[in-house]
Simulated scan of single mutants.
Amino acid sequence: MGEKPTIRDVARRAGVAPSTVSRALSGTSYVAPETDERVRRAAAELAYPRPVRRPRGAQTVAALARFPSAWFFAEAVGGIERTLRAGGYHVLLHNVGDPAARAALPDERWGLAGLIVVASSFTPAEQARLEELAVPVAVVGGSWAGVPRVGIDDRAGAVAAVRHLVALGHREIALLAFDPDDFVGRATAEARRLGYLDALAEAGLEPNPDWVVATGHDAPAGARAVDRLLSGPRLPTALFAMSDEMALGALRTLRRAGIDVPGRVSVVGFDDQAVAEYADLTTIAQPAREQGERAAALLLESLAGVLDGVPDVDLPTRLVVRGTTGPPAV
């Protein structure tokens, strides 16, 4: 007996994305008639079983997030939960930042109505497992081909942060980056790294590899990054941190070392979480809760079978200038 056909087998035969197969067979959103017919023909030829829709009253949506207690994830999941609850759905939070949890990704036994992926990446094998659920999916941040997405332009946000520093006169700008070995968050880290490099190139500045320090995503990671910079031969005049948490850790270490901010070193974060205002932190603001709300609303449309197309929405970011940036010392 041959192997059981997968959703990717159907997608290959029909010449579409796996998410299109899911939408066509489950009837959760609009698919062009000719595409719908091609998918159904491929599924029939492969004897691929049509997904079984569960009663609405028993439906639950799983939210997959890396660091549920971190600011961005907590805000986004809060928006997701509020919107889905208003639509009559329960939310099950699954922490994919934990290796054991990643080994136990949702399967058909969970009885899910849908998935929302919050700023998390998956290996091809993991994504294939999730696609086999054949349920509607929406994404907050990150990307998933053929799936409704709401996020921000991380690259453009990083460009704005570094442009601000360049406009103040800085030419020696370091990047405090997320851990590149963290596969789950790689897409966000890479977009912000590219934005940093774009802004340097725009200003005619060469990046210094010693000033790109990747240590993690939180305040201790920011502190470790600054410790490393302090041990180097020359301290840059400005730091761009990929998160407010990293920026706050950097600020504490700089101040404990007696280094004036912004007199000697300027610092810019990314997020504009509530504590950023009280730390007087210059940062890039992003609407995390609204991203969750909008993605959940798209998922509700998909579950109701009224979603038109595959929306890809970028919400605006903005530079918030406070007291941690200023011109470099003469």
Rank of each mutant, 00 (worst) to 15 (best):
A128M: 15
H164S: 07
V268N: 04
A104L: 09
L112P: 13
D181N: 09
A113S: 08
L133D: 00
D308K: 15
Q127H: 15
G97M: 02
P99M: 01
D181E: 15
R12C: 14
V184G: 06
G204E: 01
A189F: 07
G309K: 14
A214Y: 06
V268T: 08
M242P: 05
R289C: 06
G222N: 04
V16T: 06
A221C: 02
Y89L: 14
A65F: 02
E37F: 08
I284T: 01
R102A: 00
I7D: 00
A297G: 08
R318L: 04
E245Y: 03
P148S: 05
G292H: 10
V321I: 11
A257P: 15
T35Q: 04
D314C: 11
T283A: 01
A187K: 13
R155P: 14
V39G: 07
E108C: 05
A160Y: 02
R224S: 09
L130Q: 06
I80E: 04
R40K: 15
A285V: 02
V162Q: 05
E75M: 10
A276I: 01
L315F: 10
R23N: 07
A297D: 00
T83Y: 06
T20G: 13
R38L: 09
A247N: 05
R129M: 12
L239I: 09
R224N: 08
A138N: 15
S69F: 08
L303Q: 05
A257F: 12
R256A: 02
S26L: 04
V147R: 06
A65K: 03
D312Q: 15
D308V: 12
G2F: 14
P207S: 07
G195H: 07
D182T: 03
D182V: 03
A329D: 09
S69Y: 06
D198F: 15
